[in-house]
């Protein structure tokens, strides 16, 4: 499981996260919602090793994950799909996927993962030799997710996968994320502006406000909480 205690992160003089603590059980999908600047992206970037923590602890399966480099954390099963369809435009779809499994140094395992990804997102299969920058927004998000799955993660950190996508595509992506938790037993931390959509598929929800936790609970309970509704769901 993921255990986070008193996590504090500073960007220069600005304190982006203030003593955040929460746990996520293995196999759970946790949605992290909150306004712009609440510290959601900072939280993910700290968990994947891109940002440095000033204080606090974070453990994944009893392994201390703070102060490690991202490329090392990947080898511990943590995979971060950063904001804005994180694919490499100059590489082909196939190369983007293979990139995720290079560190495993196992051709047959990689080929197996690739097959799984293409079953999950058949549209990528039709575009394997195309450059990633020729894909639509939804396809790019699928590719970013696919690349992440190629590294055989146990903990997926997803930063706003719905950003800039059409409602139908969002539904498709969210469904795929839900499937990854249910069928493959992945643990997922899903950061979203689209709070309603995220809470619909999540098991638990965490509301961040100005770097602190404002509310936590089961996703269903948060969805019906009048205060959360008013502040983050817009009705």
């Amino acid at each position: 499981m993921l255990r986070i205690e008193n996590l504090t992160v500073d960007h220069g003089a600005i304190r982006a996260l203030r003593g955040v603590s929460f746990n996520v059980e293995k196999g759970q999908l946790a949605a992290i919602i909150g306004a712009n600047g609440a510290g959601k992206t900072t939280l993910l970037r700290t968990l994947s090793g891109l940002n440095k923590a000033s204080e606090g602890q974070a453990h994944w399966n009893d392994h201390n994950i703070l102060h490690s480099k991202p490329e090392k954390l990947v080898r511990h099963g943590i995979s971060h799909v950063s904001e804005g369809k994180s694919v490499i435009p100059g590489l082909t779809v196939s190369e983007n996927l293979e990139l995720g499994s290079l560190w495993r140094r196992n051709r047959s395992e990689s080929a197996k993962s690739k097959k799984e990804v293409l079953e999950l997102f058949p549209r990528l299969g039709e575009r394997l030799s195309q450059r990633a920058d020729s894909l639509s927004g939804g396809e790019r998000q699928m590719l970013a997710l696919g690349r992440s799955i190629m590294s055989k993660p146990e903990l997926l950190l997803l930063d706003e996968p719905s950003l800039g996508l059409a409602p139908l595509v969002i539904e498709q992506i969210f469904q795929a994320i839900r499937d990854l938790t249910t069928t493959k037993g992945l643990t997922v931390i899903l950061v979203e502006q689209n709070a309603m959509g995220a809470l619909k598929i999540a098991d638990v929800g965490i509301v961040l406000n100005l770097g602190s936790i404002a509310a936590t609970g089961s996703a269903a309970a948060l969805k019906d909480d009048p205060a959360v509704r008013a502040a983050y769901l817009g009705f």
């Binding site: 891109l50 991202p70 490329e71 990947v74 995979s79 100059g90 590489l91 293979e98 990139l99 290079l102």
Partner: peptide, 22 residues
């Protein structure tokens, strides 16, 4: 694979790190 890593790291170092490239 080395070539793919070299190209990826030059296009997008951060994404490459997240993909596990040293």
């Amino acid at each position: 694979n080395l070539g793919l890593s070299l190209r990826a790291a030059s296009f997008a170092p951060e994404i490459s790190r997240l993909a596990g490239i040293r």
